[in-house]
Amino acid sequence: MAASLYPPSSREPAEKRRALAPDIENAFQAFSQKVFADSALSKKTKRWKRREWQSNLKRGSGDGD
């Protein structure tokens, strides 16, 4: 099997991102809370978005918080 295209997942990139740009992180978290609030999006769209987010976590593009 070929080597993974993405590096192994770790918390370090997310922690560094938070330290360097806390306002952007806070804005993203606030946006996420609104998007996933009841009736903000259809259940189908939320389900798709969660799967995409989980897929990104597996590839190391997020930290799971």
Rank of each mutant, 00 (worst) to 15 (best):
F36V: 00
P8V: 10
R47I: 00
R51F: 02
A19N: 06
A2F: 04
R50S: 06
F28A: 10
A30P: 13
P13H: 07
G64D: 07
M1W: 07
D23F: 06
P8Q: 05
S10C: 08
S9R: 05
N26Q: 10
K34C: 03
A27I: 02
V35W: 03
P8C: 13
K34V: 03
D23R: 14
K49Y: 03
S10V: 10
N26R: 15
D38K: 02
S32P: 05
P13N: 09
A19Y: 08
R11V: 15
R59I: 01
R47D: 02
R50E: 05
N26F: 05
E25P: 04
G60M: 00
K49E: 00
N56P: 02
N56Q: 08
Q29Y: 02
S9H: 03
M1K: 11
T45E: 13
R11F: 14
D23M: 08
A37T: 01
E25R: 00
S42K: 00
S10A: 13
R17L: 06
K44V: 11
S4T: 07
A21C: 11
R59W: 01
A40L: 02
W48T: 15
A37K: 00
S4R: 15
L5F: 08
P7F: 03
E25K: 07
S55F: 05
E15I: 09
K43E: 09
L41H: 01
W48R: 10
N26M: 11
S39A: 13
D65K: 12
Y6E: 11
A27T: 06
S39V: 08
